[in-house]
Design a protein around this nucleic acid. Sequence first.
DNA 1: AGCTCTTCCTGAAAGC
DNA 2: TGCTTTCAGGAAGAGC
Length: 299
Amino acid sequence: MPELPEVETVVRGLRLSLPGRTVADVRFGKTDFVDNPAEIADQLPGKQITEVTRLGKFICIKLQARAASAAAGTPHLPVYLIVHLGMTGRLTVLSSSDSNLPHTHVFFHLDDGRELRYTDIRRFGRMLLLPESQFAAFKGQLGKEPLEIGAEEFCVDFASRHARVKALLLDQSVLCGVGNIYADESLFRARLHPARIAEKLDKKQLLALHKSVRQILEEAIRFRGSTISDYFDSEGKRGQFQLRHRVYQRDGKPCFRCKTIIRRAIVAGRGSHFCPSCQPAPRTRAKKRINPQMNTDKH
DNA sequence: AGCTCTTCCTGAAAGC
DNA sequence: TGCTTTCAGGAAGAGC
């Protein structure tokens, strides 16, 4: 599923072909994942793409009226087309003669005859248009960029929280961009069990987590993301980082570090993969324990 | 504050 | 064989 490294890979690909292009026309299929399809279809034609950036897991495509039409009168302020790929979203630039992938729901016709297409099997993605004036507020709702946050800041943010460390890593208002794969891989590298309570971690552990999140994301970007089933970049290519996963979807297989069998359990509502030996479970209060291990096992 | 449950959606895989 | 059920998961919202 597209998380920060996958979205970054898509953005880097789009940056090679979109800036400078003008949107000629917009066509929609299903629109239940689009906030304001009519507005998008109305406002984008005639606007030129000036920038493609990433905010967490969001792709931000900045568009402006071209100089000539702006000079003609009506004030045309920049707008941002914001795209979240959800679970199965894909953005691809294709020639208009290329055949359609199934579940393609948005077509942006460009002035060079090509099309930017949005495909999303499950439609868990999201698309919206933001005027520039609302972009800062949108950005403000998101947590800090995991590749930018400093070690001290990271420690302060986590040490003040009572939540499970896995839940915090996934919380987009704390850190933006980390999803299930990279949360599990980061926790394994930092040797922390996903159910550990953040405020109970010591400084050394928090520093290790900060470092591993950053390292894992950087490595995953280098490998162009992870393709489990549905992720493909803007050129339709698969990622390669899934070949280097140490725990994600490796339940039942031996740990690369110690050979203990990797387990899967639900933590913070998400399937979580960990090595029970490298990542010891937090101490639990001695209560009536029916199943002394993790009582939420699958299989 | 933070946890769990539910909803959205489809296709793969398991169950019968 | 073929139909039915279950499940995965990012994010948001409800309820505790």
